[in-house]
Amino acid sequence: MDSEALMLDWQLVHNEIIPTDPLSLDDVRERVGRNVLEVAYDGDVLAGCSTVRPPSSDGSAATVIARILPAYRRQGFGEALYRRGLARARDLGASAVETIILASNVEGLAFALAHGFVEVERYVLPGDTIPFITLRLA
Results as ranks from 00 to 15, higher is better:
108 G>C: 07
15 N>R: 05
27 D>Y: 05
60 S>R: 13
108 G>R: 00
116 G>F: 07
120 V>P: 01
119 E>R: 05
57 S>M: 10
79 E>R: 15
116 G>C: 07
97 V>G: 00
51 T>W: 11
28 V>M: 05
28 V>Y: 01
57 S>Y: 09
37 L>Q: 04
16 E>C: 04
15 N>L: 03
85 G>Y: 03
19 P>C: 10
54 P>C: 05
89 A>N: 03
110 A>C: 00
106 V>K: 12
93 G>A: 04
17 I>F: 02
75 Q>G: 10
53 R>H: 14
111 F>R: 06
135 L>M: 15
132 F>D: 09
104 S>V: 09
89 A>E: 05
95 S>K: 13
121 E>N: 12
53 R>P: 02
131 P>L: 09
107 E>I: 11
49 C>S: 14
24 S>W: 02
40 A>M: 05
15 N>T: 02
106 V>I: 15
62 A>S: 10
108 G>Q: 04
75 Q>D: 06
6 L>W: 07
69 L>F: 01
79 E>T: 15
64 V>W: 09
70 P>N: 07
89 A>K: 08
125 L>I: 07
41 Y>N: 06
43 G>E: 04
54 P>I: 11
12 L>T: 12
74 R>V: 06
129 T>S: 15
43 G>D: 04
113 L>W: 00
114 A>E: 13
8 L>Q: 15
3 S>M: 08
97 V>R: 00
115 H>M: 01
31 R>V: 00
118 V>A: 11
63 T>E: 15
96 A>L: 07
1 M>G: 14
8 L>N: 14
24 S>T: 15
110 A>Y: 06
121 E>M: 09
119 E>M: 09
130 I>G: 00
130 I>A: 14
52 V>I: 10
80 A>T: 15
127 G>C: 06
56 S>M: 11
4 E>L: 15
13 V>C: 06
71 A>P: 02
20 T>C: 00
121 E>D: 12
31 R>N: 08
82 Y>N: 08
70 P>W: 10
117 F>C: 05
60 S>H: 13
100 I>S: 12
110 A>D: 12
86 L>R: 14
79 E>S: 14
104 S>K: 08
59 G>Q: 08
99 T>G: 09
8 L>M: 13
95 S>D: 10
90 R>Q: 12
101 I>R: 00
117 F>A: 00
112 A>W: 02
12 L>P: 00
78 G>H: 03
65 I>W: 04
123 Y>C: 01
23 L>I: 07
93 G>D: 10
130 I>T: 15
78 G>K: 00
12 L>E: 09
63 T>Q: 14
108 G>V: 10
102 L>A: 13
34 R>D: 02
27 D>I: 02
43 G>T: 07
1 M>T: 12
100 I>N: 05
6 L>I: 13
10 W>C: 06
15 N>C: 03
